[in-house]
Computed example of a mutant assay.
Amino acid sequence: MIHFVILINRQGKVRLTKWYSPYSQKERTKVIRELSGLILARGPKLCSFVDWRGFRVVYRRYASLYFCICIDQDDNELEILEITHHYVEILDRYFGSVCELDLIFNFHKAYYILDEILIAGELQESSKRTVARLISAQDSLVEAAKEQENSITNIIAHATK
């Protein structure tokens, strides 16, 4: 089971977190501080698995971001690396070569994509095509809601003149 997903940049700033196990806000802050210090200090030639507090943290660096996923000791680390790569490929497909700024300014989309892939700490959808279709449908719903909101705003504006 995946306990949490954390995306941090090379300076240790958190860009995205998703918690699947209960942690208080104080514990979350401590976890992020510990893990960012531990992972950022590791050399690039070391393996991408770290034993931490009875769990295993699997991380992978893409450009300036570290994708860190905490799992149980007996879970398959290679599967987690594949899930991470799957998530990055979908982000690339959606944003067109994703970068840190895409995640900063469109964090809601990054969360939505992650929620389509993982649910309750388990892999939900492994098909990139299916995830892309669901994201496109959600984008269409958002656009329709914005158009409806604009039309209602225009009606109210004309009625109050």
Rank of each mutant, 00 (worst) to 15 (best):
F4C: 14
V14G: 06
L81D: 04
Y23W: 03
I155E: 12
W52F: 11
T17D: 05
I69C: 08
R33V: 12
C99M: 09
V5A: 14
L38N: 01
R15G: 12
F67C: 00
F107S: 13
F49T: 07
H3G: 14
L123N: 06
R53T: 02
R129T: 12
Q11G: 02
I113F: 12
E82G: 03
K161L: 08
E27Q: 09
L16C: 01
N154G: 10
G37N: 12
I80R: 04
R93G: 09
S24R: 01
I119Q: 10
R15Q: 15
C99V: 09
I6N: 14
G121L: 11
L46I: 02
S36M: 11
G37M: 06
G54M: 11
I32P: 01
F55D: 07
K13A: 14
Q25Y: 04
L35W: 09
R133A: 03
F107Y: 15
A120F: 06
S127F: 05
A144Y: 00
S136M: 12
D51W: 02
R10E: 04
V50Y: 03
L101H: 05
L46D: 09
L103G: 05
R33F: 14
G37Q: 08
A157W: 11
I8V: 11
Q11C: 13
Y66M: 00
I156Y: 15
Q73I: 15
E125I: 12
A144N: 10
F95A: 15
R28D: 02
R53C: 07
A110R: 05
I69S: 03
L118W: 15
H108Y: 03
A145N: 13
F107R: 08
D75Q: 10
E116T: 01
C70Y: 02
Y59S: 06
C99W: 01
E125P: 08
I156T: 10
S127T: 06
L81A: 09
Y66K: 01
V98C: 11
S21E: 10
E79C: 10
F55S: 03
E116M: 06
V58T: 04
T153S: 15
E122F: 04
A41S: 13
V50N: 01
S127C: 06
T160I: 13
P22V: 13
C70T: 07
